[in-house]
């Protein structure tokens, strides 16, 4: 039996609101505490509105030992991850989009199966290997692991991006004096750029928020999530709120900036 339209809509919106609240309410309280006085963070019951706005909590967090250098590390790792993941992933995505080669579908599935290995299981052998290779406790090492985590995503998204750029455009460029390579550079790449940018930013967020592998694989050159995670037991609640906010903010900004692209990429294929 079909529900009346109004009831149907009401149910859909109720579930949507519930899901949104599930995500947004904690975020709101984290942000609120991060920008309130330390007293407000400790007080109970919590104020629902910003009654005691202050930069003191954030300043305390940023002044804590290792925080600024870990933010720098996080940026360095994330940028390196973007470079590695796109350099490896975009050509693979292009191949998936353009060429009908033997094992093409199998490859696409294989890319996804790499997601089946939990990083928790891989970290210890990785740490051992990195120690042997001299990559342990280095930004490059963490970036390599993050690249491996981001690659399946980058490959599938870029292939979606290149599928959307008509192959005839590149062929037209070839008849107009381009080689295969210059046709790609002059036509396909500029048209794919917004989609590639979306993939790059998402890669950034994956790396920025990754805590587990970074914790296992570093000692002194901690990334921000690794630092916050290891300091969790000994740190005051204000530190946690401020840290949580700094870690969540880029992801939220990303969602707002890239919403349209993501919907296109995942809904439009």
């Amino acid at each position: 039996m079909r529900l009346p339209y109004a009831v149907d809509r009401a149910l859909v919106y109720a579930v949507a609101l519930l899901l949104a609240a599930w995500v947004l309410v904690p975020l709101y309280f984290i942000g609120l505490a991060a920008f309130s006085t330390p007293d407000a963070a400790y007080s109970y019951p919590k104020a629902l509105l910003p009654v005691a706005p202050s930069a003191e909590t954030m300043r305390f967090f940023l002044d804590s030992r290792g925080v600024v250098s870990s933010i720098v590390n996080s940026f360095a790792v994330a940028l390196l991850t973007i470079v590695i993941a796109l350099l490896l992933g975009a050509p693979a995505g292009y191949a998936l989009a353009r060429f009908a080669f033997r094992g093409r579908d199998a490859f696409a599935v294989l890319v996804l199966t790499t997601k089946m290995f939990p990083i928790a299981i891989l970290s210890i052998p990785l740490a051992v290997t990195f120690l042997q290779l001299g990559l342990y406790d280095s930004i490059v090492g963490v970036a390599l692991v993050h690249s491996a985590m981001a690659l399946p995503f980058v490959i599938l998204v870029t292939s979606g991006v290149f599928v959307a750029v008509s192959h005839e455009l590149e062929e037209a460029a070839q008849t107009l004096g381009c080689s295969r390579w210059t046709a790609f550079l002059r036509v396909a790449l500029p048209l794919a750029l917004p989609g590639l940018a979306a993939a790059a930013i998402f890669t950034f967020v994956i790396s920025w928020n990754e805590a587990f592998a970074s914790t296992i694989l570093t000692l002194r050159s901690r990334t921000l999530p690794a630092l916050v995670l290891t300091a969790l037991d000994q740190s005051p609640i204000t530190f946690k709120f401020a840290g949580g906010f700094v870690m969540a903010a880029p992801a939220i900004a990303f969602i707002f900036l890239m919403r349209r692209y993501l919907l296109n990429l995942w809904g439009g294929r």
Binding site: S166, L169, E171, A172, T175, L176, G177, C178, V187, L191
Partner: peptide
């Protein structure tokens, strides 16, 4: 020869006009 060395010009069914 590659397309660009043949001295041909082509009009495609989809026109393939560069959108950018």
């Amino acid at each position: 020869l590659a397309p660009r060395d043949r001295n041909i010009a082509m009009v495609f069914q989809s026109y393939a006009v560069f959108p950018h």
